[in-house]
Amino acid sequence: MIGPSSSHTAGAAKIASVGRKIAGRGFYRVDFDLHGSFASTYQGHGTDKALVAGIIGLDPSDEKIRDSFELAKKMNLDIHFHLKDLGDVHPNTVQIRLTYPGKIVSITGSSIGGGNILITQVDGVEMEYTMEYPLVIFQYTDCRGIISKITGYFSEHGYNIETIKTVRKDKEVSLLIELNKNIKEEALEELKEKHIFKKIMYIGKRSI
């Protein structure tokens, strides 16, 4: 860990790492909107290096965090930092915008102390995700019976659902499910093969 504060380094790296995990690879530009104390101390406390490290896939304990800017440059990533008031949120909050050909994906997260984080927004979907459990996000056009099919699949394959939440915008649905254990890769691939979903995003409990 670099810098004097785990909230500003380990937590920041974890938020960015979650962003990379959720959004997937293939982005060529990253914009970090820094709020509160992140905005006022990001250079002196090493938050900037930690965020870049997380977005390029480095572990929060990796010594190469100090060289994250150089590593990002070698990967041809266009990195930008902005100071921004994100409203009534935790002082250590960052919104990350990842630009791909033809789309932008955003993730908002807060470093809440001791290296712990809270993800509050993914691609416009509001949440309060603490990483206590593995999370699966299903995005699809509303259709009768989909939720029962998903929950039935998990039950049949030995997964317990800890929490479930739906976010609807017109006919588009984001279904957030926290599970009692990580999903096996083959199960995740089987779910992705079901053409009813526009997108499936997954964060394993120990993936960050």
Rank of each mutant, 00 (worst) to 15 (best):
E63K: 12
L58T: 07
A23D: 12
S110D: 06
G57E: 06
S68W: 06
I104K: 14
V30Y: 01
M75L: 12
G57T: 01
G57W: 02
I112H: 04
T9Q: 07
D67P: 09
V105W: 08
I65A: 07
Q43G: 05
F32M: 01
I22P: 03
G46D: 02
S68D: 06
D48E: 09
S111T: 07
T41Y: 12
D85A: 11
Q95C: 12
S110H: 07
E63F: 08
L58A: 01
D85K: 11
F27R: 02
F81T: 07
D31V: 14
I65K: 06
G113S: 09
V18G: 07
K103I: 08
G57N: 03
I15T: 09
T99L: 14
R25G: 15
S106C: 09
K73M: 10
K84N: 13
G44L: 13
S6Y: 14
E70A: 15
I65Y: 05
D31L: 15
L34F: 09
G44Q: 13
K49Q: 04
L34R: 09
D62F: 02
H45Y: 10
V18Y: 07
S68V: 04
V52H: 04
T41I: 09
Y28C: 13
M75S: 00
M75D: 00
K103C: 11
T47D: 04
S17T: 09
E70K: 15
Y100E: 04
F81N: 05
K73A: 13
M75I: 00
T9V: 03
A23K: 02
N92Q: 13
L51T: 04
G109T: 08
Q95E: 14
G11F: 04
L34I: 12
G24V: 11
V105N: 10
F81E: 07
S106K: 10
F69Q: 04
G109S: 08
T93H: 01
G11T: 05
A16W: 05
G36A: 04
D78S: 11
I79C: 02
N92V: 11
I65D: 02
H45S: 13
E63P: 01
P60S: 03
T108A: 06
K74F: 07
F38A: 13
G109E: 03
N92E: 14
L77T: 06
G57P: 03
H80G: 00
G54D: 01
S17L: 13
I22K: 10
L83T: 14
S7W: 02
